[in-house]
Design a protein around this nucleic acid. Sequence first.
DNA 1: CGCATATTTGATAGATTTCAATTTATGTGG
DNA 2: CCACATAAATTGAAATCTATCAAATATGCG
Lengths: 244, 244
Amino acid sequence: MTRSSTETALALYLRRLSGRSPLGDEERAALLATPGFATLIDVERDFVRVGEPVHHACLIIHGLVARFAQTRNGDRGIVAIHIPGDMADLHSVVAPQVTWALHALTPTRILRIPHEALRELARRYPSIAAAFSRDCAVDASILAHWNANLGRKNALARIAHLFAEMHVRYQLIGERSGGFPFPITQVDLADAVGLTPVHLNRMLKRLADEGVAVKNPDSVRILDEQRLIRLGQFDPAYIQPGRR
Amino acid sequence: MTRSSTETALALYLRRLSGRSPLGDEERAALLATPGFATLIDVERDFVRVGEPVHHACLIIHGLVARFAQTRNGDRGIVAIHIPGDMADLHSVVAPQVTWALHALTPTRILRIPHEALRELARRYPSIAAAFSRDCAVDASILAHWNANLGRKNALARIAHLFAEMHVRYQLIGERSGGFPFPITQVDLADAVGLTPVHLNRMLKRLADEGVAVKNPDSVRILDEQRLIRLGQFDPAYIQPGRR
DNA sequence: CGCATATTTGATAGATTTCAATTTATGTGG
DNA sequence: CCACATAAATTGAAATCTATCAAATATGCG
């Protein structure tokens, strides 16, 4: 609700967008002036539900969010993880009948931005429209790579790939330490990489024992980035189109 | 190159778009008049490669196309399958440095449509721009559901889900028989569902033995649609937002 | 301190891969 | 139309990975 957190969140998002889509001063100013209201979401709460038409996109200010695909019988699976600076459901602007749920993995602060405001921005500034589209394209690209991971890599490689990806994504919003905040439970993490919590636990231990990376309750510390990248066969190109 | 096949392909695409995004007569006419040149792609050939900037989007006229995610070391995995009427890389209009390859699983005829023509259409007709965005959103939605499938379902359910999904998608372009054309090799199919060809083969046999569905060399025949849907826990909502 | 939740460990069952070989389809030239 | 070469599909047996089940230990929190 505070003005400052709104600005911070938009600035974070702007930074991410700018990395891929250069924007002029006018566009930057317009984006930063976008209206929205901040909301605090309790942990373990769905704040976007399947089937309900939505009229706002959710920009994550603080916390950690999971996107769940849901089958008719109620089974759910994490298909994406969102961090601060992510517009978690930009797609919903054009497809308001969302086909997935958004769920707070930790207490989370989001900025709800009216679809109409985003449409107006896109209408007025073609370069912002392009940046939005590109953001959706990157989202799709990440989903596609997760497909490849889940379908073809073993447990250790999947975890390594996820850690490597999250690391790069946190770097894009300014994280500079040898790791990244990751306050996710092992049960949820297991869900995200398509493993049993038990097996995930064992693989995490192995990752730590071998000096590659350590999962702490609230973060991941990367001990040997090169080995992590090799293990997960990670190539950051799909997150930053145009760079390598 | 022939005028007729160009028109057919665009009409097919228009039909798919219209199912989700009502378009006016003017928009429909403009879309059908989009320029493009048809090309015949040999089987097993990449016609879009990772890294190369592209300036055309590929509308599939006839045949079957796989989208491959590619890791740095050359490993590839099918992350999506495209059928006639699909614009396989609409994303590339805003992200010309593609992060996946397009590969012809069978001899395939595509229509290459200049990005510029698509941008012009979107510029002039906001409802077409929205339809394009929605098409991308559905693509992302399909990717997300595949994530859930690959991560959490067993071999049989994954195959059933894919068959159910392909069936619905073929119905959207007018297929009315109790099945759909699917001239894909078992090796490629195994790749798409993240299984070994050997295991896929066994599961296909089981699917047939139990009277659910039969994979023939060029098609899939669905024997018991209800059971197929139940097995794969398939919910078509994510392919047709707004309908159920 | 004590409860509730999260993590860790052990033992076993089950699904899937791997390796190796065989059969069946498909296409081509004579 | 047949013989051959090639690719695709199928089968079997063993190894491996991951899930499942059940219990113990840590950890955070009021």
